[in-house]
């Protein structure tokens, strides 16, 4: 569950005031809105990468506002993916497990199997297609079994065919993990294909979309 209450964020001249919304456990929420409206800023605040002035963020009943990003147990896929280019796909997938000292126990092969990237495990990110890179970034974020998954425009740079293919992958992620997901996009098709709940950031406020 993601519960954001009365969030006030200020960055230079940009500001978001009194942002509140809730995503129930296991739900797939899509947050829409114009580019530059602050959708990414909200995700960053939930991840712990952006300080905010006031308000609270609760994940699974846990107040996480004061926690560092590592302790929030949030899987994050940024728009540019930010894969670690010096590591192989296998090392990218296993990164969080290594850092958090979680035993691997076949987790990487399992993830790679159902994300369809098993043949890529020994390759480096530089040679991957857009869809392959997306799957790796998704797998890297899911490896440590976070309670919440945040996706920032994950399909924006993909062609139509790969986009539809990735809808299938995201459905599969949801079925397998039941992870609470907040997906930011400005594509209505993504919302139609994936969302249980659709919200829109309009004029600095979150409003539900039917």
């Amino acid at each position: 569950m993601i519960e954001v209450s009365g969030l006030h964020i200020r960055a230079g001249v940009f500001r978001l005031d009194d942002i509140s919304f809730r995503v129930n456990s296991g739900a797939y929420a899509v947050l829409m809105g114009k580019s530059g409206g602050g959708k990414t800023t909200i995700l960053e605040a939930i991840c712990g990468l952006r300080a905010f002035e006031s308000g609270s963020i609760r994940l699974d009943e846990r107040e996480i506002s004061a926690l560092p990003p590592a302790a929030r147990m949030v899987g994050y896929v940024p728009q540019d993916l930010a894969l670690f280019s010096h590591l192989t796909v296998r090392e990218n997938l296993g990164f969080a497990l290594n850092v958090r000292r979680i035993p691997e126990n076949g987790r990487i092969d399992e993830l790679a199997g159902w994300l369809g990237i098993a043949p890529l495990l020994d390759r480096y990110p530089a040679g991957l297609s857009g869809g392959e890179a997306q799957r790796v970034a998704l797998g890297r974020a899911l490896a440590f079994q976070p309670s919440v998954l945040l996706l920032d425009e994950p399909l924006s740079a993909l062609d139509e065919a790969t986009r539809i293919e990735m809808h299938g992958v995201l459905h599969a992620v949801r079925e397998r993990t039941r992870v609470t997901t907040l997906h930011v996009t400005h594509h209505r098709e993504d919302a139609k294909a994936l969302a249980d709940v659709v919200m829109e950031l309009r004029d600095g406020k979150i409003v539900p979309v039917s």
């Binding site: 960053e44 990003p69 590592a70 940024p78 540019d80």
Partner: peptide, 15 residues
Amino acid sequence: IPSRVDDVALTLGCT
């Protein structure tokens, strides 16, 4: 080097 890679590393569990 994009600072975003550091950000992702932080969310994955790094200090």
